[in-house]
Write a protein that binds this DNA or RNA. Sequence first.
RNA 1: GUGAGUGUAGCUCAGCUGGCAGAGCACUGGGUUGUGGCCCCAGUGGUCGAGGGUUCGAGUCCCUCCACUCACCCCA
Length: 414
Amino acid sequence: MEFTTIKGFRDILPDEISYWQFLENEARKLFEVYGFKEIRTPILEKTELFKRSIGQETDIVSKEMYTFQDSKGRSLSLRPEATASVVRAYIQNRLYQKGGIQKLYSIGPMFRHERPQKGRFRQFHQINVEEFGDPGPITDAEQIIMIMELFNRIGLSDDLSLNINSLGCPRCRPSFREKLKSYLENKREELCSDCKRRSELNPLRVFDCKVESCKKTLQDAPIILDFLCEDCKEHFSSVQKLLNEFGIEFVVNPGLVRGLDYYTRTAFEVLTEELGAQNAIAGGGRYDGLVKLLGGPDHPAIGFAIGMERTIELLRKKRRIDERSPDLFIAALGEEARKIAFSNAIRLRKKGIWVEMEYEDKGLKAQMRRADKLNSKKVLIIGEEEIKKKNAILRDMRTGEQKEIDLNRIEVEI
RNA sequence: GUGAGUGUAGCUCAGCUGGCAGAGCACUGGGUUGUGGCCCCAGUGGUCGAGGGUUCGAGUCCCUCCACUCACCCCA
């Protein structure tokens, strides 16, 4: 085959689309009652935006972005995540001048040049939520409650677990970082080669390591929660209190570290055991310093992203979302009948009725088989007999009952 | 970037120590005039991932390449 999708990119085919629409629709309905409004930003941005927000040293920016020069020599990148673009839009369009809190969501493709595997693609889709302007723990809890409610509504809550952590703030994180760094320095010989590298660049990430010896070494490592300043401590315990109050189960995981530099305080992840190595189907957290860092006002913010491919894979594994099926199939016998069928199909569709028919000259049996395959609820049979009598036979495909009806009364009968 | 696995019909796969390219599902038609599902019969459909080598003969053995999958890594 000469033309195929490029590596890590894929077609989402019609037989999968009911799942996508279901997920999107449920998300939109839920977000709406929480006061979130949709925003759509470009998928292409100046490279610098991502470098500044996500962090120069992160894997996403240093080796996973689709970056190229345009004809004027400017460096552009396909977005690897949504937050940077939404923050940019918030600042550029002065959304903060509308006053109060801005609640935004966005759905669309992201791009990362990684080696594809189960649950990981180079083009993938996220449902993204961002909220600007409120520093308090209520907002944190509200977003977590909302995301868990979404998973509950689509029927996945039994298969998911929620992890939360606090990453501190610029006042308290540095001292923890130093402490951890020196701890790792002393234990350097016990760490795997990856963790040796991590302990230099981004020491928090060693907590993600899956190597047994590293896990063991880290058992006695300092944890961030012991280093939180009073404000961060207070904030985090309020979040937990609220989650408890509203019956949200969670695990405090001090090893939960988000890979992007901009996170502060609350971080959370929704995990599943069912999808192999890529087990996070949603993740997010607070990023109080980012708006200012990108040139906006010093506004706090919090957000999360849901991985749509992963959610849908889990959804397909756990339940069936039925496709819609036609309301009526018109089986016509002969040239004259087909004309009548066609004009009636057009007429009924104007009224919002899903009508299918056979366009070729085929026997009734073949047409019935086709109607059955399409899972049509009813079949209208028009043949020479019926034309003479100016009526048609309406068959209910589930019960097998059929009756003669007047052609003008089709919409009433079905 | 590293490692392992897999490429045969639209899909899922069988094909033994080398000897005529197969099954199930799907699709099309039929099982007496104009009635679906179940059943029965028949038919369409293949550059066996690509190229090279060994051999009288290669889907099968050897080499090279390509693609896909999973894992590491990273993350949604």
